[in-house]
Design a protein around this nucleic acid. Structure first.
Length: 773
DNA sequence: ACCTCCCGCCATCGT
DNA sequence: ACGATGGCGGGAGGT
């Protein structure tokens, strides 16, 4: 698919870089380069071509592959489009189109399709005026544009410019489960590409940072981690939230809802509050990240997993005592909406309404993975030491600090033993096997996706082997009768598309469609019920749930699900259950727990038809079939089989590795099971990345997975529940502050307890020490 | 009229 | 000092 000719590629890149927003230009350029179709009729064709041509370019640009131009080169000055947004063009070559094209290029086919169809469609009008860049050297034929562009008078509606949509686009640019190598994100490029101001990108990035989906590398440059760490991050947040007693707060403030007034317990009360940030108002920056983490924590500790905006705002305001202050409240609410939009795009929450005495209040419901609670938690105990639900009991605090979590900084700093050393070491391996705490991070590493399009997601995961990833391409999972998106979410892999034909799946990604289904549903109920219910409802149709389902579409009743790498709504943790030791055990049961909606759902995959498969160091697990039986899903037997009959999941497990955190990823082609634990193993092996990726990764900061992942298991010495209380206060005063990593730094942060200068502290690079300077 | 939340000014921070 | 970040809240689109 890629262009064979480097030169061309380069050119395209350049073009793209120069003017991402103007499709016409690109097109023109492409033509110049080699694409000759100008005819409108052929636009699509051109596009395709362009796409293919641009694939690299895109990747490069956005992801900053190594090959790509150097950052500097790439770096484009942000264009402030004053007028952006203003005029949309309907036509294909609008910026949007362009974007699509590029995007598609960048990612796997599926993504491509999805993106285009889904994301962009809705957005179609959104585009900034092409004019902005026009100055660019070229002659972009105005004429052409004109023709093509109809000038829609229609300006993009506000919705089209929403942060949520923007976030979806942004997310579509990167794989949910990137290969281990780091993918760089150039702020400017992305902003330009998406046609928005940088400011907006920051909004997104900040939230993503809070979840460790991205990390900051250096100025203007961020690192895309994808969702590998999401589960672990969530687990940590949950643990922290418990430690901090957020659940109590929730109860008071939120769930009870009734009381506006003084929530009995405030974070501050508890002490921790936002210390750092809050501290004395010291630095507020990163507040969005902190807020985001706290907000997420609220969901994670909530029994109902539903948090009303009002409650969240109140709780989050803690800092500012002003709570009472209306303006403060309003501001908080605004921010929460911003955060919620991003989280919604991530498929972690969805908007709902709660009824309280006063009436209906806007709220959000967690639809993301929740299993980690169980699985992870369980594992966690074993593996990761997460703070026990009971705050006190747990001596071990979350192993790693969440980057963003400023909350804990204080404590951690004190408490934690950092393995700063490890930072340097990049690899996942860093974590000593024996280490007490295992950070989930391992999981993160797992390189899964292969980007190449849909291709075979299947990979062998050979811990050691880095090389071969794809064992069996094209395996597919069939989920007969599974209509539910939620199910899909379970495994969380890449997005699942139910339809075999990616194309058909268009709707899947739901960006536009968000809510379509949702709206109908009632979310208040029990998760389990709901899930089930939904499934049924959903079955047979394409379901597009907002966040959760993104990417999943079901065609018809049949549900063949193809999981595409791109995004998975939820992470699925497979086998968390399997004891680490078990690896070899025949019983490889893979659980797919859907954290999200199906909180309860867990699929037991006994794929191990091949008993021996998992055994030993490299046991391979061949799963001709994977049957998933879920109580919840009784009706829906899940069978994953390689393409057809033979799907195999083969992966090798290192003897030592644990399966527990394995993830099940289903690529378009097939399911993959990756155990986080193995991740490191896997890490070694780049999973398939497309060539481009390779390039990209290479470039990655020195350590590809390293800093990030490597969370060394950190053990926190202190047992105390130091919760926020201390944190808060301390934060300000103590070194903890320095300690805080800024949000986003979680990764590193965890590792680096070291005090940092504020500045540095503020921004910790994922990459750890990376070159940032 | 209220809910959302875009937009972009401008204070801070980072380099 | 200058550019990068990101807090913040006015005010307007949506419903």
């Amino acid at each position: 698919m890629l262009i064979e000719k480097p030169e061309i590629k380069m050119e395209v890149e350049c073009l793209a870089l120069r003017d991402l927003t103007s499709p016409n230009k690109i097109k023109a350029n492409l033509d110049e380069v080699g694409c000759r179709n100008n005819q409108k009729e052929n636009i699509f064709v051109d596009r395709k071509r362009a796409t293919s041509h641009n694939k690299d370019a895109m990747s490069t640009m956005l992801m900053n592959g190594k090959n790509a131009a150097s950052p500097e080169q790439l770096h484009i000055t942000p264009i402030k489009h004053g007028e952006q947004g203003a005029q949309p063009h309907p036509d294909p070559w609008t910026p949007t189109a362009n974007l699509k094209m590029l995007i598609s290029a960048a990612s796997p086919d599926i993504r491509d399709r999805e993106m285009k169809k889904v994301l962009f469609r809705p957005i179609e009008n959104e585009r900034k005026a092409d004019g902005e860049d026009v100055k660019m050297d070229d002659q972009f034929d105005a004429a052409e544009e004109d023709e093509v562009v109809d000038e829609d008078e229609k300006k993009p509606s506000r919705k089209q410019k929403s942060l949520g949509l923007l976030c979806q686009k942004f997310l579509s640019l990167y794989p949910d489960y990137p290969a281990s190598e780091p993918i760089s994100i150039s702020l400017d490029k992305v902003a330009t590409f998406l046609g928005v101001e940088r400011r907006r990108i920051y909004d997104i990035i900040n939230v993503l940072e809070s979840l460790m989906i991205v990390g900051r590398r250096v100025k203007n440059q961020y690192v895309w981690h994808g969702r590998w760490r999401l589960s672990s991050t969530l687990a940590e947040l949950q643990a922290i939230g418990r430690q901090q007693h957020y659940h109590l707060l929730m109860g008071q403030a939120g769930e009870d809802a009734s009381r506006d007034g003084a929530p009995p317990i405030t974070l501050e009360d508890r002490g921790h509050g936002d210390s750092n940030y809050t501290v004395a108002g010291r630095r507020k920056d990163k507040s969005l990240r902190i807020m985001s983490q706290k907000f997420v924590m609220l969901f994670l500790v909530s029994k109902t997993q539903t948090v009303s905006l009002d409650m969240a705002a109140k709780i989050l305001i803690e800092e500012s005592q002003d709570t009472s202050n209306n303006s403060k409240y309003k501001t908080k609410v605004r921010r929460l909406y911003d955060i919620a939009n991003v989280l919604t795009s991530l498929g972690l929450i969805r908007k709902v309404h709660v009824q309280d005495e006063r009436g209906r209040k806007p709220a959000f419901r967690w639809i993301g993975p929740s299993d980690f609670q169980n699985s992870l938690a369980e594992d966690t105990e074993a593996v990761v030491s997460i703070a026990p639900p009971d705050a006190n009991s747990a001596p071990s605090s979350p192993c790693r600090k969440l980057p963003g979590l400023l909350l804990q900084p204080v404590d951690y700093s004190r408490i934690c033993v950092s393995n700063s050393a490890q930072f340097g070491t990049t690899t996942a391996d860093a974590a000593p096997p024996g280490s007490v705490c295992r950070t989930p991070s391992h999981s993160d590493r797992i390189p899964l996706l292969c980007s190449e399009g849909l291709e075979p997601m299947t990979m062998h995961v050979c811990p050691e082997e880095s090389s071969s990833q794809r064992a069996a391409p094209h395996q597919r999972a069939y989920l007969p009768s599974l209509a539910q998106a939620s199910v899909v979410m379970l495994y969380g892999g890449p997005t699942a598309q139910v339809g075999l034909d990616p194309l058909t799946t268009e709707g899947q990604r739901s960006p536009g469609s968000r809510e379509s289904v949702l709206g109908k549903r009632k979310w208040g109920e029990e998760d389990g019920k709901r899930a089930t219910k939904e499934k049924r409802e959903a079955s047979g149709k394409t379901i597009q749930e907002e966040g959760s389902l993104e990417g999943t579409s079901f065609q018809g009743s049949t549900s063949q699900m193809t999981f595409t790498p791109g995004r998975a709504p939820g992470d699925v943790n497979l086998d968390r259950h399997s004891p680490p030791n078990n690896q070899g055990q025949a019983s490889h049961y893979l659980y797919l727990s859907n954290s999200a909606d199906l909180g309860a759902l867990k699929f037991l995959l006994s794929g191990s038809q091949t008993p021996g498969s998992l055994t030993g160091t490299m046991p391979t697990l061949a799963l001709p079939y994977i049957l998933v039986s879920s109580s919840t899903l009784p009706p829906y037997p899940l069978a994953a089989s390689g393409s057809d009959a033979h799907a195999n999941l083969s992966f090798n497990l290192p003897s030592s590795s644990m399966i527990s955190s394995a993830r099940f990823v289903m690529g378009a082609a097939g399911p993959y099971v990756v155990a986080p634990e193995f991740a490191h193993l896997m890490a070694a092996a780049p999973i398939i990345s497309s060539p481009e990726q390779h390039g990209m990764y290479g470039s990655g900061s020195a350590t590809p997975h390293s800093p990030l992942e490597p969370r060394a298991p950190v053990t926190f010495l202190q047992t105390e529940p130091q919760t926020p209380q201390n944190l808060k206060e301390t934060a300000g005063g103590s070194g903890s502050k320095s300690f805080f990593q800024t949000p986003g730094t979680m990764e590193t942060g965890s590792y680096a307890p070291l005090a940092r200068r504020r500045g540095s502290a503020q921004r910790r690079l994922d990459i750890g020490h990376t070159p940032s300077s």
